[in-house]
Nucleic acid binder design. Structure first.
Length: 229
DNA sequence: GCGACAG
DNA sequence: ATCTTGTCGC
């Protein structure tokens, strides 16, 4: 398993991190359709922590978009590169996630993040960072609405409602399972919101969360246990 | 000014 | 995120 060091020049303060967000945000692309759903490869990334030992493990799992079977997997271990600060999650997870993506034996295709892209207090969440830094198409699928407001979508699977920051639609609440709490989809890089939602729906034939994040979550937890034991 | 707040 | 038993249900 790859071992990651905190990159030289990595932001050390919230002030510096926000400055980096502002810089990278200039390069985000939100008007490309992105790859069609159920086509090519889709990669889930997730991270698990052991704050006691200052250890973080990231996993990247590549699925075939058509049948959701696992095509490839990779993990990376690192040290915690930033404290958890709401709005600055990316700086905590990204170095190790990048290493896991680099360790893959194939192209990731669309990357699905556990968190937000555009739906972010400063419009530049984890999925946005990852997209701009890699050039890959990315989307964010989060389990919570953070500070945003939304009307409950219709009961049937596939129902959506806007996720709003004041008047702006920054993402969508998407019902992936009938009658179950929705997930919160937003655009990362090089994918439109419509296609981001279409992908999220295609990735949730059975469970509330996308197969990509379920697979990545299981893998990074297992890898953390093994790295810590 | 004080909380709330993706993971 | 993480700390954690049993329990209800497919």
């Amino acid at each position: 398993m790859t071992t990651v060091r905190i990159p030289a020049g990595w932001p050390a303060t919230e002030e510096q991190a926000r400055a980096v967000q502002d810089e990278l945000r200039e390069r985000v692309v939100t008007d490309e359709p992105g790859p069609p759903p159920r086509t090519g490869q889709v990669t889930g990334v997730d991270v698990a922590y052991d704050d006691e030992r200052d250890v973080v493990v990231a996993a990247a799992v590549v699925l075939d978009a058509a049948d959701l079977t696992v095509v490839a997997e990779a993990t990376a271990v690192g040290t915690v590169s930033f404290p958890y600060v709401p709005g600055l999650l990316a700086f905590r997870e990204i170095p190790t996630v990048l290493a896991a993506l680099d360790a893959l034996p194939c192209r990731p295709g669309l990357v699905v993040c556990d968190g937000y892209g555009l739906a972010h207090p400063r419009r530049f969440g984890l999925a946005s960072h990852l997209g701009v830094l890699t050039g890959l198409p990315t989307i964010g699928v989060a389990k919570n609405p953070f500070t945003f407001t939304y009307d409950d979508p219709g009961i049937p699977r596939g129902s959506v409602s806007p996720l709003r920051a004041d008047a702006d639609e920054v993402g969508r609440a998407l019902r992936t399972r009938e009658g179950v709490k929705p997930v919160f989809v937003s655009v990362g890089h090089r994918v439109t919101l419509d296609n981001a939602c279409a992908h999220a729906l295609a990735l949730t034939p059975e469970y509330r969360l996308p197969e990509t994040t379920r697979r990545a979550d299981a893998l990074c937890r297992r890898a953390l246990r093994e790295a810590t034991a």
